[in-house]
Design a protein around this nucleic acid. Structure first.
Lengths: 155, 155
DNA sequence: GCATTTTTGACAGCCTGTTGTCAATACCTT
DNA sequence: AAGGTATTGACAACAGGCTGTCAAAAATGC
């Protein structure tokens, strides 16, 4: 044996530090989203699902794929959104079972109510980092998502 | 009114894109951690808590602060770790109620069992991004954590 | 030194994600 | 056209985060 204490490799530390940062960021962004969404009567998850079908109606499984979640979680949120009158199921010409989730006026209004505070928060964050750096950080996040995806494919 | 469609500001889009990337990353890292921890009989959360007290025993509330979680969530995991024989509560000379969570041999062994696979995964991710870029991405994550923290303070 | 405030653990309940299973529907290959 | 495969929704169970509340212990301020 080489010693009592296993020395972590630099890569191992880098992965661990990145993972811890991501878990923290998840908590921070979630808290921010929750805070922004609450006044409009939404939760972060509801807002996110509404946002996904804002441009165009999608079936539950399609939303799940787009957001990288399981269809079951999205299904539960979608049912709630419909129940609370923020969205509606619409018949899907291409699939009898997979109805389309569509934002209806109340849902659109809720999302619009959030916008001003969202803009303000965005402004504050960008100011905190600087315009250029903020874009670089976003690019880094997206690059990491892509890299992790390629890793998963290999498995 | 200026138009039927509210145009999002560039900052707003940047924030939204970053948030979506973070939520995705959270899922990806969580899945990876779960996959690495399972063979050792741990979950991602258990592994994370064990990792926090590996260098030095801490009370539950201290672990929570260090990880940016609530003490209640950590408490539940800590109780499970003790129940399953991975950790133990030790009297805290500085506080009668706040016992210290300490890793015991079985917990140390579990963490050590994970290390080889963790090293391999770290190697693959770093190779995917390149050594230099991987460090830059980690730095960006940590910078964003700090920026979000400053934002929260302002509220 | 004592009263007030803060921290901490314990308990309960909720939200959102996961997996697993089943039947119905769509898709694909032959 | 038919049969096997993949996708989808429904339902159930579970994991891990959150908040809220209470009492005990510690820290603080006068």
């Amino acid at each position: 044996m080489s010693g009592r204490r296993a020395e972590p490799t630099p890569e191992q530390t880098l992965l661990a530090d990145s993972a811890l940062a991501v878990f923290r960021l998840n908590g921070q962004f979630l808290a921010l989203a929750e805070e922004l969404a609450r006044p409009a009567g939404l939760t972060a998850a509801w807002w996110q699902v509404l946002g996904a079908v804002l441009p165009t109606p999608l079936p539950v499984s399609g939303i799940a794929r787009e957001m990288g979640l399981t269809r079951q979680s999205v299904q539960r949120i979608a049912d709630l959104l419909v129940e609370r009158g923020f969205a509606a199921y619409r018949d899907n010409p291409a699939h009898r079972r997979a109805k389309l989730v569509e934002v209806i006026p109340a849902g659109l209004a809720a999302v619009r109510d959030i916008a001003p505070q969202q803009r303000a928060a965005a402004r504050r964050l960008v100011d905190e980092l600087g315009e250029r750096r903020a874009r670089e950080v976003r690019d880094a996040l997206q690059e990491l998502v892509a890299a992790m995806e390629r890793l998963g494919d290999g498995v």
